[in-house]
């Protein structure tokens, strides 16, 4: 097979950061390929209703926003490939992206593969995943009509998902290890005012128990008193932060202590010509609105990198 000529830019990941980078790169007329292993949208597809993305005063569904992003990117001619990146080699130029059956050479790369829900690492979590243990309320919430569920966590995701679950469940416990929530105030207010929600403070999940039909009990531990008690539930939803999706990213690209990729203000990683954008990056706030900003900056910086390296002014 004939070797393709090196692309200007390969964007890995089709969530908000990758698609925003794609819009900017396509409009800059960079020869760009976006690679996504599933359908476009990323974690937006896990979100029922998005209220904090500007331009949608009444909010917008995760599905709709994902569709709109993808449409806008392809309108400007962005090429999208459905494949999984297994490895990238950034030790020489051009850089090389391995998608299993072939390699794609490129001058620059934007890593935008996002993050996935972190696991707690408690007994029963793996055994009962899909049988009462869930990391996605919008996927699995409707299976809990009239049931009792618990949510673990106290951040935005945990409280948002707990509120979503009250549409279906009869009772929603929030198990939180501190004595106050981290979630943004408006979400806290809604949780405190929702009669179906009960917050169990200063408490951690110790063990998930059940039988062949799934979860039926949680062992929870009060971190102040050390007391362990039972909480009868039909399901438990775990939202204790995220971990970056970087399995394919080589070790020479610097990470922080939690594995997120470190970049400068222009989204460039420790390797020149390799950029990171969105939730995969070490940053303060992981939101759609920050992801798209990262994506735009990364695409612009990639364009500058290519110009300086490959078409230097004489």
């Amino acid at each position: 097979m004939e070797e393709d000529k090196a692309k200007d830019l390969v964007i890995i990941g089709g969530g908000p950061a990758g698609l925003a980078a794609g819009i900017y790169a396509a409009r800059a007329r960079l020869d760009t390929l976006l690679i996504e292993k599933l359908g476009q949208g990323g974690q937006i597809l896990l979100t029922d209703w998005i209220e904090n993305y500007p331009g949608f005063p009444e909010g917008v569904s995760g599905f709709e926003l994902a569709d709109l992003f993808a449409k806008q990117a392809t309108r400007f001619g962005l090429e999208i490939l459905n494949a999984e990146v297994l490895e990238i080699d950034v030790s020489s130029n051009p850089k090389r992206v391995n998608i299993g059956d072939r390699n794609i050479d490129c001058k620059s790369v934007i890593i935008a593969t996002g993050a996935s829900p972190a696991r707690l690492g408690v007994d029963g979590e793996d055994t009962f995943t899909g049988k009462g243990v869930s990391f996605c309320a919008t996927c699995d919430g409707p299976f809990y009509r009239g049931k009792t569920v618990a949510v673990v966590g106290g951040g935005n995701s945990a409280v948002e998902e707990a509120l979503f679950l009250t549409k279906f469940a009869e009772k929603v416990y929030i198990i939180h290890r501190r004595d106050e929530l981290r979630a943004t105030r408006i979400l806290q207010e809604r949780a405190f005012n929702n009669p179906k929600i009960e917050i169990i403070w200063d408490t951690v999940l110790d063990k998930i128990e059940g039988d062949e039909s799934g979860v039926n009990n949680l062992k929870i531990k009060n971190v102040k008193t050390g007391d362990i008690s039972d909480l009868k539930v039909d399901g438990v939803f775990i939202f204790v932060g995220t971990l970056p999706n970087t399995g394919y990213v080589p070790a020479e690209i610097e990470r922080n202590s939690r594995g997120f990729l470190i970049t400068d203000d222009n989204m460039e990683t420790s390797v020149p010509g390799v950029f990171a954008a969105g939730d995969v990056r070490a940053k303060l706030l992981r939101q759609i609105v920050t992801a798209v900003g990262d994506g735009a900056t990364a695409a612009f910086a990639a364009e500058q990198y290519i110009q300086n390296k490959y078409q230097p002014k004489t």
Partner: peptide
């Protein structure tokens, strides 16, 4: 799958392939 499930939508093109 179900229409309200985002990851179902994400995996649909893979299943079709």
């Amino acid at each position: 799958w179900a229409a309200w499930c985002g990851p179902c939508r994400a995996i649909a093109p893979v299943v079709a392939e």
